Lab assay of single mutants.
Amino acid sequence: NLRWTSEAKTKLKNIPFFARSQAKARIEQLARQAEQDIVTPELVEQARLEFG
């Protein structure tokens, strides 16, 4: 299971509600691909840039 830093959680809250669950799934996918067990603000930002 993935842990989220408080900064990453804050960044996730800045994503519009309607896109948040999809973004969260993508962020967690990116973390797993990078073999990380902690979601960082950088991963959230990477996903945000993908979504535009």
Rank of each mutant, 00 (worst) to 15 (best):
F17K: 14
R48L: 15
L12N: 01
A47D: 05
F17V: 11
E28H: 03
A34G: 07
Q33P: 01
A23K: 02
P16N: 05
R3D: 04
T10Y: 10
F18C: 13
D37E: 11
I38Q: 06
W4M: 00
F51T: 05
E42Q: 09
E28M: 05
I38F: 09
A47H: 08
E7C: 07
R3H: 09
E35L: 13
F51S: 05
T40G: 05
E35G: 15
W4I: 00
F17Y: 11
L12H: 01
N14F: 09
E50L: 12
K13D: 11
R48D: 04
Q22H: 09
L30V: 04
A47R: 02
R48G: 08
Q29T: 08
F18P: 13
V44D: 00
D37Q: 12
R32W: 05
P41A: 15
R48H: 08
K13Y: 13
I38P: 07
A19E: 10
A34T: 11
K13H: 11
E35K: 15
V44W: 03
E50T: 09
A47Y: 15
E7W: 04
N14D: 15
D37V: 11
R48W: 15
V39N: 00
E50V: 08
Q36N: 06
A47G: 06
R48E: 09
L2H: 02
L30E: 02
L43R: 02
R26A: 06
E50M: 13
I27H: 01
Q33H: 08
R48K: 09
F17I: 11
I27W: 02
E50H: 08
P16Y: 06
R3W: 08
K13F: 12
F17H: 12
R3M: 10
F51H: 06
K11C: 09
W4Q: 00
A25L: 12
K13R: 12
Q22V: 11
S6W: 11
K24D: 01
R32Y: 07
K9T: 11
F18I: 08
F18H: 13
L49F: 09
P41S: 11
W4P: 00
K13A: 12
F18T: 06
I15F: 15
R26S: 04
T40M: 04
L2C: 03
T10L: 15
A31F: 01
L30K: 04
P41I: 13
E7P: 04
Q46Y: 09
Q36L: 14
A31H: 00
V39P: 01
P41K: 09
F51D: 04
E42A: 08
E45G: 03
A47S: 05
G52V: 15
W4V: 00
W4H: 00
T40K: 03
P41Q: 07
Q46N: 04
L49E: 08
A23G: 02
P41D: 06
